[in-house]
Design a protein around this nucleic acid. Structure first.
Length: 932
RNA sequence: GCGGAUGUGGUGAAAUUGGUAGACACGCCAGACUUAGGAUCUGGUGCCGAGAGGUGUGCGGGUUCGAGUCCCUCCAUCCGCACCA
């Protein structure tokens, strides 16, 4: 070790620790409302603090948002950049069930660990604004918002949510006969009837109008977890967490009337800057389809079956009807001779889980009810069947079957030998249904000869004229179940009196989570909160408190609003602060929340907007989904002889071999296993016998998986920070590729970035000393600098973080070549780079400006195009589009002069081979192309 | 099946409005220095070819003076939704 190098070394560990401390002491990242500056709100999706800690994938989005937040700050914006924890959740509860430890304790420990790891990365979060969804001072306001939802209904005439009192006033005046409210209420009543209701009856009616309501509904029940799951918490028919089977069950549940917002949730997508992929996912989830609802009279009955169809134009092709097995009419209409068959089919269908039904698409099943419906236009009798391809939960749970125009109806008809009348002109339907959207209708009375589009318009007119239905829009989106039978979640601000749900007064909020003796359901299946003793509740009202807790998405649906005023005890946030910060300008997070969190947060935002609490109805103006960083698992092979084979020693026939994933920390750089380390790792390998390759090594096979503890492929940021520093890790993660792209983690390239930072550091040092020149900068250096300023600004404005890192490398390479140690140039470069590598830049800035508190109080450099002006350009000269040579020419030359210059060169003559070019294209400052 | 995205060297990738394909970095090759250290520096590196040159952005076509970029057909991979009437 050379003595002189000591001062000169880039001692990142010391530098980073120093600035972590100073930033905290100086409150560098604390932000308050400042009306003199434009605001900018940069938000990360807050993490669930799991016991596993952060791996290198987690900070990817945080690094990007941190760079952008710092950039905006240097650009003169007042930047809100907060962080917090989505700290209610299932893993802490399951851990509590296993160990008896209170989830609050585990959660706190995990949060501390997260905080340590986040601090290590040098993020510019204003930690004074931290929120935790499991903190009573936070969930007080989650409960308060629930109350607003409970006290609201959706009025279609105003197209917004309103206070339920307005609806009650209407009921008192005229009942619900002319209501424009969205509801599930089948009952019609006038004012006197309303007044005759008991208060319990009134509440029962109102529940069918409230935005947050109690109703019996089909839910996804997970017996293993003892709770209800939302659709988006189920993946491939099993629970997202734990992979347990899920079944359908009818239960009394709190729900959110998100369906009321279906149209506005669609419309709002037009006004936000999100990717098409994400918008499409939400559109898909909302699932709007236009068509008509039509009533079919059942023969010899006063029942009418309502169906929804997107193809009313095909109504003359209806040859039978199919009801979902659960349809309420089925038992009533079944003829006595068919009743047994029908019941058997219903039982069989009920036994199938949703997953089985999905897996069993090709197997056509159904049963005839023995009943007939009357075709509303032809008067024909059409048989009514039941079949499980018709879903009770979509549309009306009944379809008019048009076998010639729908493949499922076609298959059903073929299978059961039902008629398949053809209503399409010149279409052959002998092999399959005609499902195209372009065609001409035939055999359809007054629709004959019309194309599909005009036939649709015509038939809807006729249907409405006859009073048997109307044009209708249907949505796939279902109301969201809001109850969970769990402990570790927000208690509801609700109690029951004589079975009627009542709200807890604001003054009694929060209803805090009571202590329980175990985090499990009671013996009679009540949720864990039912275990709490009366005294354990912060308030105890009515006959009992609500025992359910809120789902995980409750707290995350509004947390971005709480950051604006996190310590306010009299409102979820102060109105003037909300008016200043408004919505999130940039939101970065994973795409896995596309149909969960991102939809619910939009929904709550719209409700709060409608009720006048906030001034915007879309929470996230711009959203970027960062890609996932994947892990590269190490797979070793165990042969039938129980020996571990090197991956390059496997026989062609791998029969009898099994794969085991081993911890990637046990590998050498060449993917060979450190055998002794493996033996020490797990007892099962203690006496492992190996079959090494010719080099005496046991090689593993690498496979890309999600980065996860269970695949033993986790790389933590901690080790890399220790080894290379946070600045290197930050820049390297950005350098990996475009932010949105998923990519497997590979540490190999990190030295490149680390060497770059060392090279940058060396620009400021010579002969072991910090030394800069104060002379006027060379024009060459100015050009390099301003080129970089321009590139970096452009890159950041389009969120291209990876090319930004390249530009810094190019800049430092050029300055090194120029032997530039000019103070002005390096100051500007340091400000430019500070968002990416805050510690090293802050350190160098403090060396240049010992009096300055922070480089982040400086102003971002602006490109001066004068320094970039060129007088000459190397014209690429191509022949038939192929570049052959370059020619340096004055940029002042006109196109004609360029052409003349090029033609005068011997190289041109060589490539022309004596021919005269047919055409010569000269694009000034770009290219010359000769067409031969 | 429907919807969305992606396909470029040995590797990660760049090319922002159609204008020099492969910037930057890893790796590799050769060299310098050195107490071989994961330090630093120099040169080279798409493929074929000794070279001149040819060829090259998943396949095939098209538009254009000129296509990684625009249009059409197909293929592959990934993601989301899915008996949605």
């Amino acid at each position: 070790m050379c003595f002189l190098q000591a001062n000169m070394d880039y001692t990142f560990n010391l530098i980073e620790a120093k600035w972590r401390k100073l930033w905290q002491e100086r409150n560098t990242y604390k932000v308050t409302e400042d009306l003199t500056k434009p605001k900018f709100y940069v938000l990360d999706m807050f993490p669930y603090p799991s016991g596993a800690g952060l791996h290198v994938g987690h900070p990817l989005g945080y690094i990007a948002s941190d760079i952008y937040a710092r950039y905006k700050r240097l650009k003169g914006f007042n930047v809100l950049h907060p962080m917090g924890y989505d700290s209610f959740g299932l893993p802490a509860e399951q851990y509590a069930i296993q160990t008896g430890q209170h989830p609050a304790i585990t959660t706190k420990e995990n949060i501390n660990r997260y905080r340590q790891q986040l601090d290590l990365m040098g993020f510019s979060f204003d930690w004074s604004r931290e929120v935790r969804t499991s903190d009573p001072s936070y969930y007080k306001w989650t409960q308060w918002i629930f109350k607003q939802l409970f006290n609201a209904y959706y009025d279609t005439s105003a197209d917004k949510a309103r206070d339920i009192e307005i609806l009650v006033a209407q009921f008192e005046k005229e009942g619900n006969l002319h209501t424009t409210a969205i509801h599930d209420c089948e009952q019609q009543f006038d004012a006197p009837t309303w007044h005759s209701f008991t208060s319990a009856q009134k509440e029962e009616v109102l529940q069918q109008y409230r935005m947050a309501y109690l109703a019996e509904s089909w839910v996804n029940w997970c017996p293993a977890l003892g709770t209800v799951l939302a659709n988006d918490e189920i993946v491939n028919g099993v629970s997202e967490r734990g992979g347990h089977p899920v079944e359908q069950k009818r239960m009394m549940q709190w729900s959110m009337r998100i369906k009321a917002y279906a149209e506005r949730l669609l419309e709002g997508l037009e006004r936000v800057d999100w990717t098409d992929a994400l918008k499409e996912q939400q559109r898909n989830w909302i699932g709007k389809s236009k068509g008509a609802s039509v009533h079919f009279v059942v023969k010899n009955s006063n029942l009418q079956i309502e169906v929804f169809t997107t193809r009313p134009d095909t109504i003359f092709g209806v040859s039978f009807m199919v009801l979902a097995p659960e349809h309420p009419f089925v038992n009533e209409i079944s003829s006595p001779d068919q009743a047994a068959t029908i019941q058997a089919y219903q039982q069989q269908a009920a036994l199938k889980t949703e997953r089985d039904r999905q897996a069993d698409v090709k197997n056509i099943t159904g049963a005839f009810t023995g009943a007939y419906a009357i075709h509303p236009f032809t008067g024909a009798e059409i048989p009514i069947w039941i079949g499980d391809y018709v879903l009770a939960s979509y549309g009306t749970g009944a379809v008019m079957a048009v076998p010639c125009g729908d493949q499922r109806d076609y298959d059903f008809a073929k299978h059961f030998g039902l008629a398949i009348p053809n209503i399409f002109a010149d279409q052959d339907i002998s092999a399959s249904a005609f499902t195209e959207k372009e065609g001409v209708i035939a055999n359809s009375d007054f629709l004959n000869g019309l194309d599909i589009k005009s036939a649709t318009e015509r038939i809807i007119d006729e249907i409405e004229r006859k009073g048997i239905g109307q044009g209708k829009t249907n949505y796939r989106l279902r109301d969201a179940v809001f109850s969970r039978q769990r402990y570790w979640g927000e208690p509801f601000p609700v109690y029951y009196k004589d079975g009627v749900p009542m709200l807890v007064e604001d003054t009694q909020l929060p209803v805090t989570l009571p202590e329980v003796d175990a985090y499990l359901p009671t013996e009679d299946g009540e949720p864990p909160l039912a275990r709490a003793a009366k005294e354990a509740w912060s308030c105890q009202l009515g006959d009992r408190m609500e025992y359910n807790t809120m789902p995980g998405w409750a707290g995350s649906s509004w947390y971005f609003l709480r950051y604006i005023d996190p310590h306010n005890d009299s409102a979820f946030a102060d109105a003037s602060k909300l008016a200043y910060w408004k919505q999130v300008d940039l939101y970065i997070g994973g795409s896995e929340h596309a149909t969960g969190h991102l939809l619910y947060a939009r929904f709550w935002t719209k409700v709060l907007f409608d009720l006048g609490f906030i001034s915007f109805d879309e929470p996230f103006a711009k959203l970027i989904n960062q890609g996932m960083i994947l892990g590269k698992s190490a797979i070793a092979f165990i042969g039938p002889d129980q020996k571990m084979y090197s991956a390059d020693m496997l026989p062609a026939n791998k029969e009898g071999f099994r794969e085991v994933r081993i911890l990637i920390d046990l590998l050498n750089d060449d993917d060979s296993i450190q055998l002794d380390a493996l033996k020490a790792w797990q007892p099962q390998f203690a006496n492992q016998v190996f079959v090494p390759n010719a080099q005496g090594k046991v090689i593993v096979q690498r496979e890309v998986d999600k980065m996860s503890k269970r695949w033993y492929n986790v790389v933590t940021p901690d080790d890399l920070c220790e080894k290379y520093g946070a600045d290197t890790l930050r820049m390297y993660e950005m350098f990996l590729g475009p932010l949105e792209q998923s990519k497997p983690w590979d540490t190999k390239g990190i030295t490149g970035v680390h060497n770059f930072l060392k090279k940058y550091w060396r620009l400021f040092h010579s002969d072991g000393k910090f030394e800069l020149s104060t002379e006027a900068p060379s024009s060459q250096a100015l050009k390099t600098l301003h080129k970089t300023i321009k590139k970096l600004t452009d890159d950041l404005d389009r969120f291209s973080f990876n090319t930004g890192v390249s530009s810094f490398m190019i800049c430092v390479n050029e300055l090194t070549e120029q032997k530039c140690n000019n103070r002005h140039i390096l100051e500007q470069l340091t400000i430019l780079m500070a968002p990416y590598a805050p510690h090293i830049c802050e350190e160098l800035w403090s060396l240049m400006h010992p009096e300055a508190a922070s480089i982040f109080n400086e102003t971002y450099p602006i490109c001066n195009p004068d320094f970039l002006k060129e007088s000459t350009f190397d014209y690429p000269v191509s022949f038939n589009g192929k570049m052959r040579f370059k020619l340096s020419l004055e940029l002042s030359l006109s196109a004609a002069e360029v052409e003349a210059e090029v033609l005068s060169k011997p190289e041109t003559q060589k490539w022309l081979e004596g021919k005269t070019p047919k055409k010569i294209i000269v694009v000034h400052g770009k290219i010359v192309n000769m067409v031969l």
